[in-house]
Write a protein that binds this DNA or RNA. Structure first.
Lengths: 251, 251
DNA sequence: ACGTCCAAGTGGTGTATACCACTTGTCGGT
DNA sequence: ACCGACAAGTGGTATACACCACTTGGACGT
């Protein structure tokens, strides 16, 4: 194809956003919208260089990042091509239950079981903080499309979010409340995933039989400074409704 | 610190390996050996430039890749620093069982249960290829420190590795055999993780009770062109011995 | 003694250039 | 008709340079 419909992508040299980033996002949008189809050729480094009057290294950087994010694949001597739509990554990203369900095409909901101030030595130890500290403990039955999906128990350090226990989290995202009401921005988390079987309490709440397979997750969340622990969560998901999807790369 | 013990890393300009790669691997080795400790400063881009008479962009590329692999973290205006091991170990990579167990500090082993040529329509459909294609099916009981850990069933496209079924994979890594004997380099994989309970067959082999919790994984592996499927694997891990540790980042 | 400012050092972005390895199609000779 | 050589185009590596944003610590003034 030499017809080369030019794809007039909006690159703004005055923007505070880097050029390679603007170019990357523009191409990404072209791919996600379907304007560029899987296995279709994407402009080469030198074509981009000429089209936007940028240096090849800048064009290259945009393409490199698109490759790293799985949007395109590249082959020496051949060119760069649109990759097949990948499975959305459930692992790797720190998201709330609400965001997770939306990505899976389901509607998130909750039934608040407990919301109170507690002290808990075990939790304090997990977070590596003094055992005297108080937590806001929030236990919710999480629903997806109205059906039970998971039992989620969060412990938040009260000194960072006093009064949190007074909010109603039936229809409200915990993470957006932390951000908007308390100015707390989350940065990263350490999560452990393991298989369990449902005990009587969990089975009753989640509508499965005792002994049914469950995915159990334990998470420690840190603020965006990367080192201040803010939350400990233990979640148990129905094994028949919940899978994790991961894209793995070779090191 | 200006004392600057020089860390004479071996960089060979005549080598077919790229300079940035040699530098990256050398620094990686320094970190893994403990010569560079967590949160310790690693040489800056300009220091590396001068020390090895390479350009800054080359030094930069080595550091960028180390950051992407979780070995270091970088901060504008401050420098580059060694990351804590748990960060690195929490990043998921496409690895073999052998490599995974080594990271966990255990010794990997295997008992080969089946190694034969088969056709399987369901597997072909998973890989998105023609249903007539033959596979080399390899089923192994995987051991960690001599104890059963997982049951692993791999299907490899026979046209890419004819005769693979003749090898003995008791002590041999499947992935290194693919690389060394057939020149097949793996690039990426899509993996699904879910909770299951052990059936009678699995329980017997793995030494757990029927109904015990298990982590089940399904993986499709692609060659390093990013689009040619080469392998379908189904693994089932003992829930009492195997957990996933993941480092989550905020998007 | 205290604060302000600034220079030096760091990583981040961008340009311009060169050569290499690999793929593909074409032109030309046999 | 075949095949080899070659040119053109692609991504991969490397150099050298310039300027920016940000952090830190020390010099300087008050």
């Amino acid at each position: 194809m030499t017809m080369n419909r030019k794809l007039v992508l909006p690159i703004d040299r005055g923007s505070p956003l880097p050029i390679y980033y603007q170019l990357k996002e523009a191409l990404k949008q072209q791919i996600e919208s379907g304007a560029l189809k899987p296995h279709e050729r994407v402009p080469s480094e030198r074509e981009l260089e000429e089209a936007y009057h940028i240096s090849r290294m800048t064009a290259r950087r945009a393409l490199e990042e698109l490759e790293a994010e799985g949007y395109i694949y590249r082959a020496q001597g051949k060119g760069s091509f649109v990759a097949e739509p990948k499975i959305r990554q459930g692992l790797l990203w720190l998201t709330s239950f609400t965001e997770d369900m939306r990505e899976r095409g389901m509607r998130a909901g909750a039934r608040v079981l407990r919301a109170e101030v507690v002290s808990d030595e075990r939790v304090a130890r997990k977070l590596g903080i003094g055992s005297g500290e108080e937590f806001v403990m929030l236990q919710r039955l999480r629903l997806a499309d109205g059906e039970p999906m998971a039992l989620e128990t969060s412990y938040l350090r009260r000194r960072f979010c006093p009064g949190l226990e007074g909010h109603d989290f039936t229809d409200r995202s915990l993470y957006s409340t932390l951000q908007e009401e308390y100015g707390l921005r989350l940065g990263r988390a350490e999560q452990a995933v393991e298989a369990k079987v449902a005990d009587g309490f969990e089975a009753e709440l989640l509508g499965v039989k005792p002994g049914a397979p469950m995915l159990s997750m334990e998470r420690i969340t840190y603020l965006d400074d990367g080192q201040t622990p803010i939350e400990y969560v233990r979640s148990i998901y129905r094994g028949d409704r919940y899978k994790l999807y991961v894209e793995l790369k070779r090191r």
